[in-house]
Simulated scan of single mutants.
Amino acid sequence: MLTGLNVAVIGGDARQLEVIRKLTELDAKLFLVGFDQLDHGFTGAIKVKLDEIQFEEIDVIILPIPGTNPAGIIETVFSNEEVKLTDALLTSTPPHCVIYSGITNPYLDKIVESTHRKLVLLFERDDVAIYNSIPTVEGTIMMAIQHTDTTIHGSSIAVLGLGRVGMSVARTFAALGAQVKVGARKTADLARITEMGLTPFSLENIHEEIRDVDICINTVPHLIVTSKVIANMPAHTLIIDLASKPGGTDFRYAEKRGIKALLAPGLPGIVAPKTAGQIIANVLSQLLTELKIDGKGFSS
């Protein structure tokens, strides 16, 4: 149980509702910022404005999956209130206060470093990333069906990267009957691709390997689908970029060439927000239980 733990949930989308539901069930005391337009309430959770919170009593701050934007603004789907995370706000929290976010950026890194607060990134955890790959794959299949006029079965598909998402995407599209080849840099990954019964290729040869693909699915979080790569693609190729913003594709050149390129980060929150929220809620409840047991200075 999380009795006595004071938690500020600041902003977020439908995934955060599952987090709120789970933490209130565990008897944490929640202060919800950016949820004033939400119709229903939660027992044990209070909707407040940012300036109404006594941050000196807050043990935990939970941010949305994207954290903040580059200027520190936090996304609030259920409110028109503009909410900004500042170093002054973090300084007002107790030294033991922990901040949880999905991912980070230079702004967020800077303010947690300057205030000596601990930042925990949920999407750096293998368990979260692997669980999230399931709705990501389902969303990718949905996009492939919506934006092509042929079946996935029999299509030639290139998956770039064999990380946690890339592996799930490659395996599932192959199971649907696609001809899947996977690009990677490490020799160990190329060996794994072969073991999976798929066709491996080195990303150094991407310009040649891309010549015959119907769908290119990128999971690499830096520019890899360059103008040179796109120039070698068939005109009908669909690019689905699953990497974090700004993605790994030259979208300007793709548009210029008339190739459809879709940036699709955060698919779990779009196609299956309830499941995606439950994944985050379960991991957070485990982390907060451990934090409460080990932590000192909490209100309980």
Rank of each mutant, 00 (worst) to 15 (best):
E52H: 10
E52N: 15
I53L: 03
I53M: 09
F55A: 07
E56Q: 14
E56H: 12
E56R: 15
E57P: 12
E57A: 04
D59V: 02
V60I: 15
I61Y: 13
I61T: 13
I61H: 10
P64T: 05
P66Q: 14
P66C: 14
P66G: 11
G67Y: 04
G67C: 10
T68P: 01
G72V: 12
I73Y: 11
I74H: 04
I74K: 10
T76R: 03
T76S: 07
T76V: 06
V77W: 10
V77N: 01
F78Y: 13
F78M: 01
N80P: 01
N80K: 12
V83K: 02
V83E: 03
K84W: 01
K84C: 11
K84H: 06
K84P: 10
L85V: 09
T86S: 09
T86V: 04
D87P: 09
D87C: 08
A88F: 12
L89I: 09
P94N: 07
H96C: 09
C97W: 01
C97Q: 05
V98H: 14
V98M: 09
I99Q: 00
I99K: 04
Y100C: 06
S101Y: 00
G102D: 02
T104C: 05
P106C: 12
Y107C: 00
L108K: 04
D109W: 03
K110W: 03
I111F: 02
V112P: 10
V112H: 01
S114W: 08
T115Q: 13
T115H: 06
T115N: 12
T115F: 05
H116T: 14
K118D: 15
K118G: 04
V120R: 02
V120W: 00
L121V: 00
L121D: 00
L121G: 00
F123W: 13
F123R: 07
F123A: 03
F123E: 02
E124R: 14
E124K: 15
E124Q: 13
R125S: 15
R125Q: 14
D127R: 12
A129E: 07
I130C: 02
Y131S: 10
Y131D: 05
N132E: 03
N132P: 11
S133E: 15
